[in-house]
Lab assay of single mutants.
Amino acid sequence: ELVLALYDYQEKSPREVTMKKGDILTLLNSTNKDWWKVEVNDRQGFVPASYVKKLD
C-alpha cells in the first residue's frame, strides 16, 4: 500500500525516516495509530501517521 507525505518530516532518531511533502512511500505497518512504518529510498522507519495519507 502507498501513502503520500502531506508535510516534510525530519527524522529525530535512527528508527525514523526523513520525507518531503509530496513523497510517495510504501506503507509497511499501520497498526500503531500515531507512528506508521514506511519505506522510502530503500530505508525503513517510522513517520508520524498524521503526516501521511493512504492513496486509493
Results as ranks from 00 to 15, higher is better:
Gln10Val: 14
Val40Ser: 15
Glu11Tyr: 05
Gly45Lys: 02
Asn32Tyr: 08
Glu16Pro: 05
Phe46Ile: 07
Trp36Ala: 05
Lys33Ala: 13
Thr26Val: 15
Asp42Thr: 09
Val40Glu: 03
Glu16Gln: 11
Asp23Tyr: 05
Tyr7Gly: 05
Gly22Lys: 02
Glu39His: 08
Val52Pro: 01
Lys20Thr: 10
Leu2Tyr: 15
Leu25Met: 14
Leu2Gln: 11
Lys37Leu: 15
Asn32Trp: 07
Gly45Gln: 02
Thr18Glu: 05
Tyr9Gln: 00
Val3Met: 07
Lys54Gln: 08
Asp56Trp: 10
Pro48Met: 04
Gly22Phe: 05
Ser30Lys: 08
Leu27Asn: 00
Asn32Phe: 09
Tyr51Thr: 07
Lys33Asp: 11
Val52Ala: 02
Glu1Asp: 12
Tyr51Arg: 06
Lys53Ala: 13
Glu1Val: 14
Pro14Arg: 09
Thr18Leu: 03
Asp8Ser: 09
Ser30Arg: 09
Ala5Gln: 01
Asp56Ser: 13
Asp23Glu: 13
Tyr51Gln: 05
Ser13Ile: 04
Glu1Phe: 13
Thr18Cys: 06
Lys37Tyr: 15
Glu39Tyr: 08
Leu2Gly: 03
Lys20Trp: 10
Leu28Glu: 02
Met19Gln: 02
Met19Thr: 03
Gln10Lys: 13
Leu25His: 04
Asp8Lys: 03
Lys53Trp: 10
Leu27Ile: 06
Ser30Pro: 07
Asn29Lys: 07
Glu39Asp: 08
Trp35Glu: 04
Asp34Gln: 11
Leu4Thr: 08
Lys54Asp: 04
Thr18Lys: 04
Lys33Phe: 09
Arg43Ile: 08
Lys20Cys: 10
Val3Ala: 12
Glu1Gly: 14
Met19Lys: 00
Lys12Met: 11
Lys20Tyr: 11
Trp36Val: 07
Arg43Lys: 12
Ser13Gly: 13
Lys53Asp: 08
Gln44His: 09
Gly45Cys: 03
Thr31Glu: 14
Leu28His: 05
Val52Lys: 01
Asp42Ser: 13
Asn32Ala: 09
Thr18Phe: 05
Trp35Ile: 03
Val3Thr: 03
Glu39Gly: 10
Leu55Phe: 10
Leu28Asp: 00
Lys37Arg: 11
Val17Lys: 01
Gly22Glu: 03
Gln44Ser: 12
Ile24Lys: 06
Val17Leu: 15
Val17Phe: 14
Glu16Met: 05
Ala5Lys: 01
Leu27His: 02
Thr26Lys: 15
Tyr9Leu: 01
Leu2Pro: 06
Lys37Cys: 13
Asp23Gln: 15
Tyr9Val: 00
Gln44Cys: 09
Leu55His: 07
Ala49Val: 05
Leu6His: 03
Tyr51Asp: 03
Asp23His: 05
Ser13Thr: 13
Phe46Asn: 04
Glu39Met: 13
Asp34Leu: 13
Lys21His: 06
Met19Arg: 01
Leu27Lys: 02
Leu28Lys: 06
Ala5Leu: 02
Leu4Pro: 00
Met19His: 00
Ser13Leu: 10
Leu28Ser: 02
Ala49Gly: 04
Glu11Ser: 15
Arg15Gln: 13
Lys37Phe: 15
Lys54Val: 12
Lys53Phe: 10
Lys21Trp: 03
Asp8Met: 03
Val52Phe: 05
Trp35Asn: 02
Tyr9Ala: 00
Pro48Asn: 02
Met19Val: 10
Trp36Tyr: 07
Pro48Gly: 01
Asp8Pro: 06
Thr31Gly: 12
Ala5Tyr: 00
Ser50Glu: 10
Leu27Phe: 03
Leu4Gly: 03
Tyr51His: 12
Asn41Val: 11
Trp35Cys: 06
Leu28Arg: 05
Leu55Gln: 06
Lys21Cys: 08
Ala5Glu: 02
Val52Ile: 09
Leu6Ala: 04
Pro48Gln: 02
Tyr7Thr: 07
Val3Asp: 00
Val38Leu: 04
Arg15Pro: 06
Pro14Met: 09
Asn41Lys: 14
Leu28Thr: 05
Ser13Tyr: 07
Pro14Ile: 12
Lys33Pro: 14
Glu39Lys: 12
Lys53Val: 15
Arg15Ile: 14
Val47Phe: 00
Leu27Gln: 00
Val3Tyr: 13
Ala49Gln: 06
Asp42Met: 12
Leu4Glu: 12
Lys21Gln: 11
Leu55Tyr: 09
Leu4Tyr: 11
Val47Asn: 00
Lys33Asn: 12
Asp23Asn: 07
Leu6Asn: 03
Gly45His: 02
Lys53Ile: 15
Val52Tyr: 01
Val40Gln: 15
Phe46Lys: 02
Trp35Pro: 01
Ile24Thr: 07
Gly45Ser: 02
Lys12Thr: 12
Leu27Thr: 01
Asn32Met: 09
Ser50Ala: 14
Lys54Asn: 06
Thr18Pro: 07
Leu6Gln: 05
Gly45Leu: 05
Arg15Tyr: 14
Val3Cys: 12
Trp36Lys: 01
Pro48Glu: 01
Val17Gln: 04
Ala5Gly: 03
Lys21Gly: 05
Gln44Thr: 11
Gly22Gln: 03
Asp23Val: 05
Phe46Arg: 03
Val52Asp: 02
Leu55Thr: 06
Ser50Met: 12
Glu11Val: 07
Gly45Pro: 01
Leu28Val: 12
Ala5Asp: 01
Thr31Phe: 09
Met19Ser: 00
Val38Asp: 00
Leu4Met: 15
Val40Phe: 15
Arg43Glu: 05
Trp36His: 03
Glu1Tyr: 14
Thr31Met: 09
Ile24Arg: 06
Lys53Met: 15
Asn29Arg: 05
Arg43Val: 08
Trp35Gly: 02
Met19Ala: 03
Ser50Ile: 10
Val3Gln: 02
Gly22Ile: 02
Glu39Trp: 09
Val3Ile: 08
Thr18Asp: 04
Trp36Glu: 01
Tyr51Asn: 05
Tyr9Thr: 01
Ile24Glu: 03
Ala5His: 01
Phe46Pro: 00
Ala49Met: 05
Pro14His: 11
Lys33Arg: 13
Leu6Lys: 06
Gly45Glu: 02
Thr31Lys: 11
Asn32Lys: 07
Thr26Gln: 15
Asp56Gly: 14
Gln44Lys: 10
Asp42Gln: 10
Asp34Thr: 13
Leu25Val: 07
